[in-house]
Design a protein around this nucleic acid. Structure first.
Length: 350
DNA sequence: GTTATTTGACCGTC
DNA sequence: GACGGTCAAATAAC
């Protein structure tokens, strides 16, 4: 086991470094292109930084522990991945649908689309004076469509979906649940991915990325740093962000989120831990963060169907695009181990 | 006037 | 029947 892990980490490290190199090349090209926008260059720079930081994190973590705890050497954030069941901090019935969805997928399959959406959770702690609502703003436009008192929870759960849901068929949704025990902690569960252009333009914010555990296994088990890294860009100082990895049902997650393009734009394959679930803690200094999230639910959009097709039609560029796969062919070169046809990748049709 | 939020009702799942 | 998630009308804010 360890050997395979070690090997996997090495491969991941190599991939990460290769990605960084490729990004540097792209930056070089852009620097020579007058028409290239500043934003594009910035994006590439950010990607390179992220890539190298991830590589460093891998080295750091591999030498430290295998307990799923990692620390970025960057100093501006402490990221911790904790393998833990997707339970809420407060013990409240947090996304109970986690298991429910899991069962559904297992048993019936997708009579209800929302049950098949990728989902991941972040726990955000507001440690210093910013509005408690601050953490809810992740740079994406969310529209609240519901609020519900949850059994066993002191605070109601808020339901949000992407503002561009109708206009751009963006199925991203998120649920915001305040912790009972610690009101400064918000548990944000994201569903689905942003497919709206907004996702690709909000480079200043770092909406949480879905922790693609599966992809992780396939591509790079250590890339989990990606998300935290991105989050750092927008999370207000003083906030502690805990990303609870994909819930148990994440076998269904696609590893990537169109969002990835946004943040810095790029994709970074998997940033979640090698395990099916995990928690990431981000401690940042204060300024505004936004918890972004996404999830899906719409029915008018055909994304789910497209995704489904994607699972059956391996390597379809269109499907990949629809899925928001960050990497194109070039990226695939960077991640030779990645494949769409792995049963662990798209275990179920969407 | 347009867009976002609130809130009760409805639906699906367990 | 209980519960969570979503819808949609009413209301508020811009």
């Amino acid at each position: 086991m360890e050997n395979s892990n070690m090997h996997g980490e090495k491969m991941s490290l190599i991939n990460e470094l290769a990605q960084g190199r490729e990004l540097a090349r792209q930056l070089q090209i852009h620097l020579n292109v007058p028409s290239s926008s500043h934003g594009t260059r910035e994006s590439l720079v950010q990607k390179i930084i992220v890539s190298y930081e991830k590589a460093l994190s891998m080295l750091n973590s591999s030498s430290s522990a295998s307990g799923g705890e990692q620390q970025l050497p960057t100093g501006h954030a402490a990221i911790r991945m904790i393998e833990s069941p997707p339970t809420s901090l407060n013990g409240s019935p947090r996304s109970e649908d986690s298991d429910r969805e899991f069962k559904d997928q297992d048993n019936k399959d997708s009579s209800r689309k929302r049950k098949t959406l990728p989902r991941w959770t972040q726990q955000i702690r507001v440690t210093s004076g910013m509005g408690l609502e601050g953490p809810l703003d992740d740079g994406f436009s969310w529209r609240k469509y519901g609020q519900k008192d949850i059994l066993g929870a002191k605070y109601p759960r808020g339901y949000y979906r992407c503002t561009h849901r109708n206009a751009q068929c963006c199925l991203a949704t998120k649920q915001v649940q305040r912790s009972d025990e610690d009101p400064t902690v918000f548990e944000i569960t994201y569903r689905g991915r942003h497919t709206c252009t907004q996702a690709s333009t909000s480079t200043t914010s770092a909406p949480p990325l879905p922790p693609p555990q599966n992809s992780m296994d396939i591509v790079d088990p250590q890339q989990n740093q990606q998300q935290p890294q991105d989050l750092l860009l927008t999370i207000p100082q003083g906030l502690t962000v805990v990303t609870e990895g994909l819930d148990a049902g994440d076998q269904e997650l696609f590893p990537y989120n169109p969002l990835n393009h946004n943040y810095g734009g790029h994709f970074s394959p998997p940033f979640m831990g090698p395990t099916t679930s995990g928690t990431q803690y981000l401690s940042v200094s204060e300024q505004g963060f936004g918890g972004g999230g996404q999830s899906f639910q719409g029915a008018e959009c055909e994304i789910p169907e497209i995704l489904s097709s994607a699972t059956s039609a391996n390597n379809s560029p269109i499907a990949a695009a629809a899925l928001g796969f960050p990497f194109g062919q070039a990226d695939q070169n960077l991640y030779p181990n990645f494949s769409f046809d792995g049963p662990g990748f798209f275990p179920h049709s969407y």
